[in-house]
Design a protein around this nucleic acid. Structure first.
Length: 406
RNA sequence: GGAGGAGUGCCCGAGUGGUUAAAGGGAGCAGACUGUAAAUCUGCCGGCGUAUGCCUACAGAGGUUCGAAUCCUCUCUCCUCCA
């Protein structure tokens, strides 16, 4: 542990939404340096969603920073909670997951999470290993330490209570279970999104009850999705998946609104802290072309998830297709059977470039369809497959099919 | 157990008998421009072999009417309140 206290603190606090409580954290970090004893940094994860996107990586990034500072990451798989089915979010019960599925999910999750985390410094535990053993009386004893009033302090509970939206009793138990996880592993720090704030604080309280040093609760901001409005989520389709191809990620990052850049830098990269100030300054002074900063951002993120080399290749690919408006190298092929003439609209639909005949006609009218770069003007065009063989069919700027005649 | 409210296109959301394939917004797609797949502006945005045409569509099934997303009946789903 060579890093100075101040340096560690700066890195840890960077990009966070909230640190509760910072003074205590400083004390813990100081002790850890003095005794050469790493902090136990806890992150709970939900084994229901195996595909992680950049939004999830915000917190993983922070965890990685802790690892880089020499601390220990402990990932808690919420297998017990998942097995019961978390009722939060209205009154719909989530499907119960069987242990096998949870195991699978955890595995794919870890595979993706290790793109960011250092596996050497990561420990993984299932929370069933202690929650399962609790007897009903243990649960009673746990619940007796919290009051309903305390529970209702949580904003979403409060809103639902006031608004007469149902709250299942079991939902009160979730924060307690999560808090108990912290007790079980004696966490020194717990990370989470802003929505986890209350749960993280519960951990502190319960740890005090068990005469442990209360954990520091660090919350990270929610990442805004590629649309620049909503939070990043799979269901909204504004996400960038960790498992997506480098070229895809590069393109998606280039497509985020400029205003989002600085946030992405701060939450998704691990640069020297001074760098962020520089970038922020350049953006507000407009003395650097934003596109340069965006490209750098894209490369940084891809380098993390893949390799520097792949990031560079993704950039090249991007330039090839979008800047120089050339055709990319790997285009999906589409074969037509050799024979009589074929209607252009049909080819567009069958090749999957377009969803319906009507749409294909409209696109042709708009001048969006090209064969080997030449605009198709007539939606009634009929072509011999042999004429098309080897040619490239293009819709808009970035959708291509290589035609093969069989 | 009782009372009431709601269900519209990918999503949100107007529309309470006709000119409604259904306002508006978002998403998506395309065109122009550029610094990029940013921003901005414009166009498209149910389907049908090319159509002053036909089909499908406002939770589902029936019914009233020349005509229904709009009125009636039943069914289903969701929500709220009272007990």
């Amino acid at each position: 542990m060579e890093n100075s206290l101040q340096k560690q603190m700066n890195v840890i606090v960077q990009g966070t939404e909230d640190v509760l409580n910072e003074d205590e954290l400083e004390k813990l970090v100081a002790d850890s340096i003095k005794n050469d004893k790493p902090l136990k940094v806890k992150l709970g994860l939900d084994p229901t969603a195996p595909d992680i996107h950049l939004g999830h990586t915000v917190v993983l990034n922070k965890l990685r920073q802790f690892q880089d500072l020499g601390h220990k990451a402990i990932l808690i798989i919420g297998d017990y909670t998942a097995r019961i089915g978390d009722p939060s979010g209205r009154s719909k019960l989530r499907p119960k997951l069987d242990p096998k599925a949870i195991d699978e999910n955890a595995k794919t999750y870890m595979k993706q999470a290790y793109k960011i985390l250092d596996p050497e410094k990561t420990e993984m535990v299932n929370n069933s290993s202690w929650l399962k053993k609790l007897k009903f009386e243990d649960v009673l004893s746990l619940t007796s330490r919290f009051t309903v009033a305390r529970m209702l302090e949580r904003d979403d509970f409060k809103k639902r209570f006031k608004g007469n939206t149902p709250i299942a009793i079991m939902e009160f138990l979730y924060p307690i279970m999560q808090a108990y996880d912290s007790v079980a592993i004696e966490a020194s720090v717990e990370l989470g999104g802003t929505d986890q704030r209350f749960n993280l604080l519960m951990g502190r309280e319960l740890q005090k009850e068990f005469s442990q040093t209360p954990q520091i609760a660090i919350t990270m901001p929610i990442l805004v999705g590629t649309d620049g409005v909503e939070k990043m989520s799979k269901s909204l389709g504004n996400y960038i998946g960790v498992d997506e191809a480098p070229e895809e990620i590069f393109g998606k990052i280039m497509s985020i609104p400029d205003d989002l850049m600085i946030g992405y830098y701060k939450l998704l990269t691990r640069l020297d802290l001074k760098e962020y100030d520089k970038i922020e300054e350049s953006l507000s002074n407009k003395n650097v072309n934003p596109v340069i900063l965006k490209r750098r951002l894209a490369k940084l993120i891809i380098s993390d998830l893949y390799t520097v080399k792949e990031a560079e290749e993704a950039e090249k690919h991007f330039d090839l297709v979008f800047k120089k408006k050339e055709v990319p190298e790997n285009i999906e092929e589409y074969s037509i059977r050799e024979g009589g003439k074929v209607w252009i609209v049909k080819i567009l639909v069958d090749s999957g470039l377009v969803k319906s005949n009507g749409q294909a006609r409209r696109l042709i009218k708009q001048g969006a369809v090209r064969i080997d770069g030449e605009k198709v003007k007539d939606s009634n065009l009929e072509i011999k497959p042999s004429f098309l063989d080897g040619k490239i069919l293009q819709k808009g700027k970035r959708h291509f099919r290589k035609i093969k005649a069989k």
